[in-house]
């Protein structure tokens, strides 16, 4: 039963963490910032509202939010959150999870193109482009992990003190991997310096412009989906940053929550001190993550041999 006990609160807490980012940004801006439960209020408000649909749209537009949220939720089922056993795990679930997130992306893009809006098309084109490099990075990282563990499940990489084992074998290059994964996190979840979720000009957005036309509960699903996706990536990073198993699930959970707070705070700090890259510079930034993962793999293999 433990997996369920962890999974449900994890999902429920997913909207909490992004508020940390807002708080940190507000701190840097010298403001008080929104309350910590702001995203729950937002969701509740959205779920209470009705929707306006564009006359250009089809059923895909309604399917998009559902599929992207479901994909993110299902992906979380395979992840050992706080090092506890995941709900499901099978040989090669890494691939399944990555492609499932791809399915979510497909539908987000398709829903955006459904509106016939030039702005949303622009966002969609970017959403289709940058994650390609991210995928290469992620696979590079998993090749390294596979080489180290001989397994291809998220559980074998991140369960219990398995990440510690990764650190022991790979050593310092794993720091590159963590950095690379953090860049993937920023890119996949449309954060600064790839995308600015707080900007006001539609031309310069990626994720936000794609969901311009969604409203009401549909938009709530999209928000929830992106919270879950961010949670997914942050949870992986947190397992890599804090690879220890403290012996008791509750202690693990406490440590995990703390690290998660720190990661979200780090995202907030980056958003406060950095500017968004010009769109044509983004690929190079994302490519850096691939270079990091690649160098880490090559160096590690030199030692593990």
């Amino acid at each position: 039963m433990t997996p369920i006990i962890i999974f449900i609160p994890a999902i429920l807490s997913a909207p909490f963490f992004p508020a940390i980012i807002l708080k940190v940004k507000a701190f840097f801006g010298g403001k008080k910032g929104p309350p910590l439960l702001i995203q729950y209020y937002t969701l509740a408000k959205l779920f209470k509202k009705g929707s306006v649909y564009s006359t250009s749209t089809t059923y895909i537009f309604k399917l998009g939010p559902m599929v992207s949220l479901s994909a993110a939720l299902t992906a979380l089922m395979f992840l050992p959150i706080s090092g506890a056993a995941p709900l499901f795990s099978f040989k090669g679930d890494v691939l399944f999870v990555l492609y499932l997130l791809g399915l979510g992306r497909f539908f987000t893009i398709a829903a955006a193109l459904d509106t016939a809006s030039p702005f949303e098309g622009m966002g969609a084109a970017r959403e289709a482009y940058f994650p390609i490099i991210c995928e290469a990075t992620t696979f590079m990282i998993f090749i390294l992990f596979y080489r180290l563990t001989g397994e291809l499940t998220l559980a074998s990489f991140f369960y219990g003190n398995h990440p510690l084992e990764l650190w022991r074998v790979a050593g310092a290059p794993l720091a590159f991997v963590v950095t690379a994964f953090f860049i993937v996190l920023l890119t996949e979840n449309a954060r600064v310096p790839v995308d600015d979720p707080a900007t006001h000009l539609e031309l310069t957005m990626i994720h936000e412009v794609m969901v311009l036309d969604h409203s009401g509960p549909d938009f709530g699903f999209i928000e929830m989906g992106s919270f879950c996706k961010l949670f997914f990536y942050a949870a992986i990073v947190s397992r890599l940053v804090f690879p220890f198993d403290l012996g008791h699930p509750a202690m693990n959970l406490a440590a995990f929550s703390l690290i998660m707070l720190l990661i979200y705070a780090a995202v907030g700090v980056i958003e406060s001190v950095m500017a968004r890259y010009r769109m044509d510079r983004v690929p190079k930034f994302v490519l850096t993550s691939f270079a990091l993962a690649f160098v880490a793999t090559i160096i590690t293999l030199e030692f593990v041999k």
Partner: peptide, 22 residues
């Protein structure tokens, strides 16, 4: 990772990549 110098040198390798992309 056996030697401290390797850790530092791996950063040098990265700095090469960085200088190529900068």
């Amino acid at each position: 990772m056996t030697h401290l110098v390797d850790i530092i040198l791996s950063f040098v390798l990265l700095s090469i990549i960085f200088s190529f992309g900068s």
